[in-house]
């Protein structure tokens, strides 16, 4: 065990993954010589050489397309998109090629590409370095979508994703890269994709969140407890596939739901989650499901604090739900 922040845990996971399997290669903008803009890939090129850690031109389409080709020929590429905001130039490659290969080839070909991308706000990044595009990918059959909220899950999910036979969109909340550290095993371990984590046990209301909203939710749950509201906090960790069993078990216990995410509200992942819960557990609900989210505007630079869900907004939603 060592104390690691999320960057260190990911870096450690990448080292292990590349050592374990010589077919694992890393490609992206500045991932080699510089070690990545967030230093997640620091030291990898020195250790594994320029054949396995490739600095690419600024062409996200090219990065993903090359990774698909490598995967079809037996490699296990890890493609880094420097900020999730820039996944959009590669959108066609991701949703029309990467996601559809297994289906199109009648199960003859797979594209086990792990696409890493830093997501979310809270770092003063403005509208092109703060977006949370998860619901675009959740609307795309053929992809898996995961998002860790702590160093342990980051490493475990990364190593699990490297063992997948299908493409995984791996979202890294950049706000959490260095804000907290935790004890993380030095060796290899996995956190299964498709399993949520109960962060805090409660009986009055379920707070469902993921990524950078998880530590915030824990703070809010502590504040709520002072008002005698006991909050069950779930960290989804995996958005596609979704651990619906854990979600429904919590609904059966608390009967009240608040969903939190950073992405804009309309057609965000919270909408999918709310409607799934209504479909599967309508008669267990005692109150409407509330969503606390980013607003339907581009991500603001000056108004970032107002845009992102705050402790007060979440607490208000919890109070409203419990009172309903």
């Amino acid at each position: 065990m060592s104390r690691m922040n999320m960057v260190e845990a990911l870096n450690n996971g990448l080292h292990l993954g590349m050592r374990e399997n010589e077919n694992v290669v890393l490609l992206g903008e500045d991932v080699g010589l510089l070690g990545g803009v967030f230093r997640v890939s620091a030291g990898l090129q020195e250790t594994f050489g320029t054949d396995r850690v490739l600095d690419t031109p600024l062409s996200e389409t090219g990065i993903i397309a090359s990774a698909i080709g490598m995967a079809l020929y037996g490699l296990r590429p890890i493609a880094e998109i420097q900020f999730a905001d820039f996944a959009f130039p590669a959108f066609d490659q991701i949703i029309n090629e990467l996601a559809k290969y297994r289906y199109r080839s009648g199960n003859q070909l797979t594209t086990p590409v792990l696409v890493r991308m830093p997501v979310g706000g809270g770092v003063g990044g403005g509208l092109y370095h703060s977006q949370s595009p998860e619901s675009h990918f959740a609307h795309t059959a053929g992809l898996k979508v995961v998002i860790p909220s702590n160093p342990y899950d980051a490493k475990g999910l990364l190593l699990a994703a490297l063992r997948e036979q299908d493409p995984v969109i791996f979202l890294e909340p950049k706000k959490l890269y260095r804000t907290t550290s935790a004890e993380v095993p030095d060796g290899a371990f996995t956190v299964p994709i498709g399993s949520a984590r109960r962060v805090r046990e409660g009986t009055d209301v379920t707070l469902i969140c993921y990524g950078a909203m998880v530590p915030l939710a824990e703070d809010v749950a502590r504040r709520a407890a002072e008002e005698q509201i006991q909050v069950d906090v779930l960290d989804l960790r995996s958005l596609l596939p979704l651990d619906i069993e854990t979600v429904l078990a919590s609904v059966q216990k608390t009967h009240r739901i608040v969903i939190v995410h950073e992405a804009p509200r309309t057609c965000g992942y919270g909408a999918e989650l709310a409607s799934l819960i209504v479909e599967k557990a309508f008669w267990s609900l005692d109150a409407p499901i509330l969503r606390v989210t980013g607003f339907d505007t581009p991500f603001p630079y000056r108004l970032e604090k107002e845009y992102l869900p705050t402790s007060d907004r979440i607490l208000d939603a919890l109070r409203t739900t419990v009172a309903a």
């Binding site: 619901s135 675009h136 959740a138 609307h139 059959a141 596609l240 309309t266 057609c267 992942y269 919270g270 909408a271 999918e272 989650l273 709310a274 409607s275 799934l276 209504v278 479909e279 309508f282 008669w283 109150a287 409407p288 499901i289 509330l290 969503r291 309903a324």
Partner: peptide, 28 residues
């Protein structure tokens, strides 16, 4: 496709704003 489609948003809005009027789960 169903997952993360517009149906989710429409259903979520109905649940948020029409809760007391609902006699059945909103289906998609």
């Amino acid at each position: 496709q169903l997952t993360s489609g517009i149906g989710g948003e429409v259903a979520a809005i109905i649940v948020e704003s029409c809760w007391d009027a609902l006699d059945a789960p909103v289906k998609r």
